[in-house]
Design a protein around this nucleic acid. Structure first.
Lengths: 353, 353
DNA sequence: ACGCAGATGGAAAACGTTCTACAAAGTTCT
DNA sequence: AGAACTTTGTAGAACGTTTTCCATCTGCGT
């Protein structure tokens, strides 16, 4: 048989059958076990054999069958579950993990968690069925006790779940710090009446908190540190809710001079409310968001906000997960510091009347 | 043995071992084959047996092992490859597929194609290694001949790849129509000097075209239909490129009265250029985008654009793929009509001097 | 020469499904 | 009553890997 040129479609043989480890073994004149060792860079194979097998692999365009692998050893795939594909931060994190995985034998499988805790859970289960070697849960809307259960089966890293646990690793942005940065910025600008619009906390949050709760806590603490009384309005993180809350705030006898929307998306609604009312931003009203979504950077919007760096977060999550897979035992918490991004929607407080 | 209550973690047994089909069979007092049939809703099982097995499955919290399944039959997973996780349209499509899959036994696995054709290809290969039952390629930056090769192995649906083929199914938005809608809108407003900023075509595009090429072709044709000469400037789809191209256009002795940016992201750059130059939009200059990204809808931006409906596209792609998996032989092309979204950046042409 | 350790390669048993036969038991038709 | 189907359930062979031994070989010190 003459040497065969590298196949364009390594996954299919002329006869349609997939190239298996046995084909490679036959061609290289060795046993399947030997090929397996070479593929996995395992111990106990001579340089000569290694190169012979490598050649056969290239010739045939062999690729290991992931399912078959999953039956015995690793699946070499890790699952990433995001809650909201519309969130730039979460997408950033996922993307970063995807990029980071390129230099490893692992591949990511991203899935969106959906709208309910049950659905979120079922996504995770499906991933576990696929024998993922590890799991990154971004902003998991799920009881941490359940996460711990899952973590007993497979390495888990959570992102943006605040709290303490010994069961799994966590990467969090220090959102209390982020809130403090905002408050300090506003106070420096002379604001005294600052309103936060924030989502209400979730049921299971005891000891654990999601981002919005951490932000609210940070806000309240920072405001008190300046000798002020915190003012918080309930508002879902959405354009409409931000809009409505801002209108309500402006209708007060003593309207705030600054609105800290818990999320950029809500800040955009706040901006719309102000524009419609003819309230000039930032001269009459300062608006600050959180998340630094893309839209915040558009010159016509130019929203002052806090950047949580999905890139740094994603990198950290991946590193932690790989360490775990490699066998680290103790759990780790990794805290990323956010940064204040000052843009055009924040300015000095109007002279008090 | 007393009845055991439903496990919270169905994936692990007390002893740590995973519940297998054999465990279920033993408990239900039937053969593994029978259980398999029930699980797959296959033919040849009596109602009595079905309910007995179902009960055992619930009791034990059995979940089929995806890898093992992939070895024999289907993997019940379908791969979705997007080129750009930053693109709202692509995310929309992916999200829609995820939602649509919820009512089926399949699960999606989204992966981002990365920045080069080679990388894109390697992502696909990895998915094929995982024995996906089907593949949706969104805006594939890859030679259609290669796609055809892959389609020989596994059902493939492409999104936003324009052309004709008998090898795989395609879902496209009718971007020529979209461009025509824009041109007609502009001409109705009295514009005669219309400039399109568009990406150059890719190498392999012969018979096939990516979105930007379709848009450009549609633009040129529509403009000519109105007896005008098409004016196209090369500009990558990015904020900066749109900005630079617009500045260059405005610097001409006879600047255009309307700029049709091939993509919203470029239109945002155009907007910035106009704002910086003090050119008022839409009084002095009309700017239109394409894609209807989220930022276009922000009141302060209010960009006139074309909406391609990722939802409709995603639904169609999924339907086509499932049909293929079920065995349809002939290839299908599904064309979705886009819609013009008129907002604040388009207005009557300034009176010609 | 003799044993011994270390290195190298292979045989064979899993892993958890699906699926093709096929057997047994009913059911319908002559 | 017997033949010919139909229905229901089962045995057992794949599927393509990994991994645990085990056998052989090489080189070395006695």
């Amino acid at each position: 048989m003459t040497t065969q040129r590298q196949r364009l479609t390594p996954t299919a043989e002329p006869n349609g059958r997939r190239v298996t480890i046995l084909d490679v073994a036959t061609r290289a004149g060795v046993s399947p076990s030997a090929v397996s060792k070479v593929v996995r860079n395992a111990y106990g194979v001579s340089p000569a054999m290694r190169s012979r097998v490598r050649a056969a692999i290239d010739d045939l365009g062999y690729r290991p069958h992931a399912g078959a692998r999953a039956m015995r050893g690793r699946s070499y795939s890790i699952g990433v579950v995001v809650t909201d594909v519309g969130s730039p931060f979460q997408i950033d994190v996922a993307h970063r993990i995807a990029v980071g995985l390129e230099s490893t034998p692992y591949q990511e499988s991203i899935t969106s968690g959906g709208t309910s805790a049950a659905q979120y859970r079922s996504r995770i289960d499906a991933l576990v069925d696929r024998q993922v070697d590890g799991l990154v849960l971004v902003a998991p809307w799920i009881d941490p006790a359940e996460v711990a259960e899952i973590a007993a089966t497979v390495p888990v890293v959570t992102v943006a779940l605040h709290g303490t646990t010994t069961d799994f690793d966590m990467v969090v942005d220090d959102e209390e710090l982020g809130a403090r940065l905002v408050v300090n910025h506003l106070v420096e600008l002379g604001h005294r009446r600052i309103t936060l619009t924030s989502m209400p906390s979730l049921d299971w949050e005891e000891g654990f908190r999601l981002s919005h709760t951490a932000r609210r806590d940070g806000f309240e603490r920072a405001v008190r540190a300046h000798g002020l009384e915190p003012d918080v309005m309930d508002a879902w993180y959405s354009e409409d809710a931000g809009y409505a809350a801002t209108l309500a705030a402006l209708d007060r006898p003593q309207p705030p001079t600054a609105i800290f929307a818990g999320a950029d998306i809500a800040a955009l609604g706040a901006l719309r409310a102000a524009d419609e009312r003819g309230v000039h931003v930032p001269d009459d009203l300062t608006i600050v968001g959180y998340d630094n979504i893309f839209a915040a950077s558009i010159p016509r919007v130019s929203l002052t906000t806090v950047d949580a760096s999905g890139a740094v977060t994603g990198d950290a999550a991946l590193r932690l997960l790989l360490e775990r897979i490699e066998g680290r035992e103790q759990s780790v918490q990794y805290v990323v510091a956010p940064q204040l991004v000052v843009r055009g929607t924040s300015g000095p407080a109007p002279a008090s009347r």
